[in-house]
Amino acid sequence: MGLLPKSLFKLTHLITLDLSHNMLSGVLPLWLFTLPSLESISLFDNMFNGNVPLEMFSLQSLKELNLANNQLDGEINVLDQCPILQTFRQLTNLTSLDLSFNSFSGEWELDTLLSSLTNLVALTLSYSGLFVTTNGATRYVNPDFNTLSLASCKIKVFPESLRAMENLIFLNLSSNDIQGPVPDWEGR
């Protein structure tokens, strides 16, 4: 068990940071999200706890973020009227986001998020504690979008955005509150 070493802060040309499958703990340090060239952060399967710093959402160079399987918590809301959505929109290069298996709280409006993050190809929020809603509108989804994992996100209806995901290769909507018939979008 240990903390992220502060010496990493001096690696200003670092592009990829993968410290997955360690026993790192503590809160995510603010300096981690100020490294100007960082494109990929993978801290999967550690013991980090506490909130995700809002500074993370201003790291415009970020393409991949994997914080899955930690003990992170705190509220992260992503709704049209929410200021954090504006912050998320700064992540214009983000292609992959995995926040699964944490204890977050908050409501994420899927259609708005997907149309805001136009480079996103993989979204994994399963067992994250987040509540995912859909506004029923089909908005822009990256044509290369291929992975959507929203197990146990309290979804009540099939997301309309699925219609636009022509290259989807992985879909997990298990352990939700979806009721009724499966939509027939064939031919539409």
Rank of each mutant, 00 (worst) to 15 (best):
F104C: 05
G136Y: 01
L123D: 02
L120I: 01
N77A: 06
L120E: 01
D73L: 05
L99G: 10
T92Y: 13
Q90K: 15
A137C: 04
N135L: 04
Y140Q: 01
Q81P: 00
I76P: 01
L65V: 13
Y127F: 15
N142G: 04
K63V: 14
L62D: 08
Y140N: 03
I76W: 02
L117F: 11
F88G: 08
L67D: 05
S103E: 13
N135C: 06
F104T: 01
L130E: 03
G129V: 10
A122N: 02
T118S: 10
L91R: 06
Q86W: 06
Q81G: 14
G136C: 03
T95H: 10
L65D: 07
L67C: 03
D98R: 06
I76D: 04
S105N: 12
Q86A: 13
G129N: 02
G106F: 08
Q90Y: 13
F88L: 11
G129E: 09
T124R: 14
G106H: 07
L72V: 08
L114C: 12
N77K: 03
T134S: 14
L148V: 13
F145K: 00
S126L: 14
L65Y: 10
T112G: 03
L114Y: 07
S96R: 12
R89A: 15
V78E: 00
V121N: 10
Q81F: 11
L113G: 04
A137T: 09
D111Y: 07
S116L: 04
L91W: 09
V121I: 15
S126E: 15
W108P: 00
V78S: 01
I84E: 12
K63M: 15
S100M: 12
Q86T: 14
L120Q: 00
L99I: 09
D111T: 15
T87R: 12
F145N: 08
F145I: 08
S128M: 11
S116D: 06
S128N: 12
F131S: 04
E64R: 08
V141W: 00
T92M: 13
V141M: 02
N93C: 15
P83Y: 04
Q81N: 12
V121P: 01
S128I: 11
D73R: 02
F104G: 05
L123H: 01
I76T: 04
T147R: 02
L79T: 14
S128A: 13
W108E: 01
N119C: 13
A137I: 09
P143L: 07
L97F: 02
F145V: 08
L91F: 08
A68H: 08
L67V: 03
D144V: 07
